[in-house]
Each structure stands twice: as C-alpha cells, then as structure tokens.
C-alpha cells in the first residue's frame, strides 16, 4: 500500500467515530423531529407516522369540534417573547461588554489576567446555582425588597420575581461572559498606533471611538452576539425559575409538550420553528459579514 492511500485511510479512521456519533445522535434524530412534526398525535401521548400539518396549524389556531379554526395567539406570544428577550439580552450584553472589555484591556498584565479569570469564573459555576441565586435576591422576601424596606424607601414593592424583567436580568447574567471574551480578544488585537494616529489627526475621543475602535472590534461583537443570542433563544432555566412558569419562552414550551402536555408533534413543530429562527439569524449574520468584507475589499 502506498503512503498516500495509507494517509487517506488514517484520515477516514480518525474522523469516523466523531462523525458517526453526530450522525446517529443528532443528524438522523433531527430528521426524525421533522417527521414527528408532520405526524399525528398518538392516543396516549407519543405519535403515529400519519401525515398531517396539524401540529403547525396548532401553533396559530385552536381547532374546534367541527374542525373550524379559531385564531389563538398564545403560542405566537411565546415565540415573540422569546425573540424580544433574546434580542434585548444580546443588546444589553453588547452595551455593557464593550466598556468592561476595554477597561480590562487597559490594565497591566497581572491585573488583566486576574480580571479575565473573574469574567470566566461564573461560566464554570453551575448554571442552575447562578440562576437560583437571583430568586433569593429578587423574591418577595428577597435581598432587594428587604434593603429597600429597611431604608424606608419603598414600603411594599411586590415581588420582582416572575416578571419579564427578572428573566432579562437572569439571561444577561447567564450569558454576558460569552460576549465579553470575544470583544476583549478583538480589542487586544487592536493596534494602539491607529488610536494615536486618530488623535494626532485631531480626532476627538468620541470620534476615535466611533470611527476607529468600534469598527475594528466588530468581528468580536459579531462573534459575541452569536454566542449570546443562540442559547438565549433556547433558554429553559431562566424562564422557569425567574419567569415562574406562567411567562414561558420557546424552550419551556417545547419541554412542556414532551413532558406534562404529552403532545410530541406540537413539541417537534415548535423545535423546528426554533431551529429555523437560529438558522435565519446565522445566515443573516453570515451574509452581512460577507457583504462587509466585499465592501472593504472594493474600497
């Protein structure tokens, strides 16, 4: 056997286990999800492979006894809430992360290392514990309510827990390290000479920030937005624990259909909608990046 053929065989063998695992546990099952989303709900939960588009209709309509369709926005509201919360989380993370990442990058080597360590540390601490900690803070008897009461500022503010605000606080808290790290990396790559050149040419600090620093950090912001937005769309813990189960996001709705509600086809249909949303977002970001590259190449 010649060296080239042996080489090719090793390449195939090395990749095979990983590819097979992904094929068997993800690629084929995602195909089954598509099938289930077009299947009929079984009499005792589960599903039968009988073609129907009913699961998708159910997302928008209630079906009456005689088959008449009545518009029901309850699931649409969940989808809209998911999109809005994910977008708001990404936006707030972007807004907060840039100054923090910039501030860290200005520190001396040791302080810089320590601060980056502090940013990554929560990522290692159990997600459920971190989300749970906000229940103690935001709850009816929580730290915030007690403090405000003790200061005599607010007598009885009611609980912050189980509101959209609580969910937003929890989502930002969970995912912000994923935004800071890529932005920090792109600030670190920034050539300080460019910033100084802008000042030498009488650019004000604000102009320098807007015209030099921010555009050069765009790749980091883009990467961070993807890392925050995608998991936010599929968030499960924050809405259950901080939203109280009444204000759901798509992740909870899917979980509910495969759990207590026992409506697998509907759960599969919502999963497909969620995957489509992620795909549209990734393609949109990808196209924007390509267009910008072309524009820069042309300039």
């Amino acid at each position: 056997m010649n060296a080239e053929a042996r080489n090719a065989r090793w390449n195939v063998l090395g990749l095979l286990p990983a590819q097979l695992i992904m094929l068997a546990t993800l690629i084929v099952p995602v195909g089954i999800i598509v099938l289930v989303s077009f299947s009929t709900r079984g009499p005792y939960g589960g599903f039968d492979y009988v073609f129907t588009t009913a699961p998708y209709r159910q997302i928008l309509f209630n079906e009456g006894w005689t088959g008449e369709l009545e518009f029901n926005p309850q699931y649409l509201i969940v989808v809209a809430r998911t999109m809005i919360l994910a977008a708001a989380t990404t936006f707030i993370c972007l807004l907060l992360s840039f100054p923090v990442a910039y501030f860290i990058s200005l520190q001396k080597a040791t302080a810089k290392m320590l601060l980056i360590y502090l940013v990554t540390l929560p990522f290692w601490v159990s997600m459920i514990v971190r989300v749970y900690s906000w229940i103690i803070i935001l709850g009816n008897d929580g730290v915030i309510a007690k403090t405000l009461h003790a200061l005599g500022l607010v007598d009885n503010m009611g609980s912050l827990l189980f509101t959209d605000t609580a969910m937003l606080i929890g989502l930002v808290y969970s995912y912000i390290p994923l935004m800071i790290l890529p932005i920090f990396a792109s600030i670190e790559k920034l050539d300080p000479a460019l910033v100084e050149a802008s000042h030498d040419l009488y650019g004000s600090r604000l102009t320098t920030l807007r015209r030099v620093i921010l555009p050069l950090c765009r790749p980091g912001m883009m990467a961070g937005s993807i890392l925050v937005f995608v998991p936010c769309l599929g968030a499960v813990l924050e809405p259950i624990l901080l939203g109280g189960g009444k204000t759901m996001m798509m992740g909870n709705l899917i979980q509910l259909q495969f759990g207590a509600a026992r409506n697998w086809p509907l759960g599969a249909a919502i999963s497909i909608v969620l995957m489509a949303a992620v795909l549209v977002f990734l393609v949109w970001r990808g196209l924007r990046a390509i267009r910008r590259e072309r524009a820069e190449a042309a300039a």
Binding site: L26, V230, V236, G251, Q255, W264, L282
Partner: peptide, 16 residues
Amino acid sequence: PLLLPEIVVAVAVLIL
C-alpha cells in the same frame, strides 16, 4: 452541538 440550541439536542436524543 454548538450550533443547535440545547433544547433541540435534548429533543433529538429523546426521540431517538
């Protein structure tokens, strides 16, 4: 697995 929201991964293996 990084490109899919985790709930979708969970549903995929559950159905499998």
